[in-house]
Nucleic acid binder design. Structure first.
Lengths: 164, 164
DNA sequence: CGCTATTCCTTGCGACCTCAACAATTGTAG
DNA sequence: CTACAATTGTTGAGGTCGCAAGGAATAGCG
């Protein structure tokens, strides 16, 4: 049985110049911004992935969270989170503890060293977000960005949870 | 010599609610949009990385390009491009040919099969960009997106080429 | 209660990327 | 012309991630 390719689209609605400029600027910005933010946390020995883990854990009461909940928040596969925690545990920033309530569950716990590092790194990360993105825009543009991308995100999430 | 951590930032300028909403919506949108676009080209047996290669080659005269130029355009390391081409060559979409002008150089050449596949896949990709992003916004928002992200991108590129 | 289905985490495997090292070729200075 | 430097592409090693499979524990239904 041959794989079925999508049907031909007879009249594709190509992007006009302004739409194309918006699309290209978006793609380039995403790439450059990701690398700039990685560079901002790299001096602390962190990747952005590591940083996100520390942030989520610090926001939890007791600074701990179930692996599965953490994976869902980070949009990471279970195996991906397991291996990312391996590195953070090795660095002493997070520790693993079995949950007393459910013996299937492992809790990721932010250590004091992890919290201290986050406290030092966070201002630099926020400063980077400001310098690279927010401060490049005036107030009206920031509001437009928030409004527009909230719409786009909600549309994307709706189409994802609907189809499968 | 111990690694020097960045100096402490005394008064970080945290994000206000609107800025935070803009930032979170941006991050979520980037993640969801990337996966949605991957899904749009996956039925053709392509990743977005593969698709980008086909697009760049199709835009060149003779549908061919030097590896190093292609890598620069795709912001890919030389080794990354070598291995991506391996897959495309195996699929018969691209072929490698030594350059007649410079015997160090390998040319990536889009085959007829590669061009045909691109012609079939491109409308679906554009349709995805429209459906997921452009058509979710009104004309004013698309213009604002183009203007704002062009500024941000140029700022990022300037700070990258300046420092190192 | 007992059996099955589900949840949770880990591990093997493959895909994909970068960096460092390398060989081959070309460019350039003396 | 020769020797040294720069460019180009590939390979090996290492890192990250997702999917599929599997073992352990819990939840739910008869």
């Amino acid at each position: 049985m041959a794989p079925e390719l999508p049907q031909t689209i007879d009249q594709p609605r190509w992007l006009d110049p302004v739409e194309m400029q918006a699309w290209r600027a978006y793609v380039d910005t995403v790439y450059a911004l990701q690398h700039a933010l990685e560079a901002d946390v790299a001096p602390f020995g962190l990747t952005m992935g590591d940083y996100e883990v520390l942030v989520r854990l610090s926001e939890q009461s007791e600074r701990q969270q179930r692996m599965c909940d953490l994976a869902a928040e980070l949009r990471l596969s279970p195996s991906g989170l397991t291996r990312r925690l391996d590195g953070l545990v090795r660095a002493g920033l997070v520790s693993r503890e079995p949950s007393p309530d459910d013996r299937r569950v492992m809790l990721a716990v932010l250590t004091d060293a992890g919290y201290d590092l986050l406290v030092r790194a966070a201002p630099h990360h926020v400063e980077g977000v400001r310098r690279h993105l927010i401060d490049q825009l005036d107030r009206r543009e920031v509001e437009a960005l928030a409004s527009a991308f909230t719409k786009v995100r909600d549309g994307l999430l709706a189409s994802q949870t609907q189809q499968p």
